[in-house]
């Protein structure tokens, strides 16, 4: 296997299977990532709020949940989602894509809740004290003073979470959901050109994550400027 043959094989694979990689694989990976980020952010915000509850029981349960998710492998969680979610809602006839999405969202929600929590904690306590000293309620202080400032800490971290998730969705190929890594499995199965397929998939992943993290970086700099 020389460099030239590898290169030629890559060209051949791209010519024949470009739509498997670029259309199907990329779109499913991006869809899976977008679903995970959006719903993960919603779930994360909810969890972060619950961790600030004045009921100790809720705080304990949510913290335990977040620690459990962070402390177990994502692949394991995907398996659990794959087997459990359809059992929980048999009437809905949930497919693999949906079950895996649910597992990804739950995983991401736990991480996002930590992002939001630390973003809120990073806002100077003096801001809260000033707002409360004016007579603002806890809720008003959170909405009008703390959160608008925390968003500047949170948004860039959420962007980075998106980048991470794009890479992590590759684990979903274990269940053949049709993402970019599944494209690799398909093409490898059809052509036995494992190495070449991997290079193609790797390059696409890199382009996706690199350009996205550059975008996040630019966005972060703009947020900093308005400080």
């Amino acid at each position: 296997m020389t460099f030239t043959t590898v290169f030629q094989n890559i060209i051949k694979l791209l010519a024949k299977y470009w739509d498997v990689f670029l259309v199907k694989g990329v779109s499913v990976t991006l869809a899976l990532s977008a679903i995970t980020v959006v719903f993960g952010a919603v779930l994360g915000a909810l969890l972060a709020l619950m961790r600030r509850s004045h009921l100790g029981v809720i705080r304990f349960l949510v913290t335990a949940f977040v620690e459990f998710i962070r402390g177990t492998p994502m692949l394991l969680q995907l398996y659990v989602g794959y087997f459990i979610v359809p059992l929980l809602f048999p009437a809905l006839e949930i497919g693999t894509f949906a079950s895996i999405s649910v597992a990804l969202v739950i995983n991401s929600g736990a991480y996002v809740s930590e992002i939001i929590r630390s973003g809120i904690q990073a806002v100077d306590i003096g801001q809260t004290e000033a707002a409360r000293s004016l007579g603002l309620t806890k809720g008003m202080t959170m909405r009008k003073v703390v959160l608008p400032q925390a968003v500047k800490n949170i948004l860039p971290a959420l962007g980075n979470e998106f980048v991470t998730i794009i890479k992590e969705t590759s684990l979903a190929s274990t269940f053949f959901v049709g993402d970019l890594m599944t494209s690799y499995l398909i093409v490898k199965g059809a052509t036995y050109l494992a190495f070449e397929s991997l290079i193609i998939v790797g390059a696409i992943y890199f382009v996706l994550t690199f350009s996205l993290s550059k975008l996040v970086g630019a966005f972060e700099r703009r947020l900093k400027q308005s400080d």
Binding site: E129, L134, G135
Partner: peptide
């Protein structure tokens, strides 16, 4: 407390 804090500037 919020009601009273409104009357106490800090």
């Amino acid at each position: 407390v919020d009601k009273y804090r409104q009357k106490m500037g800090m």
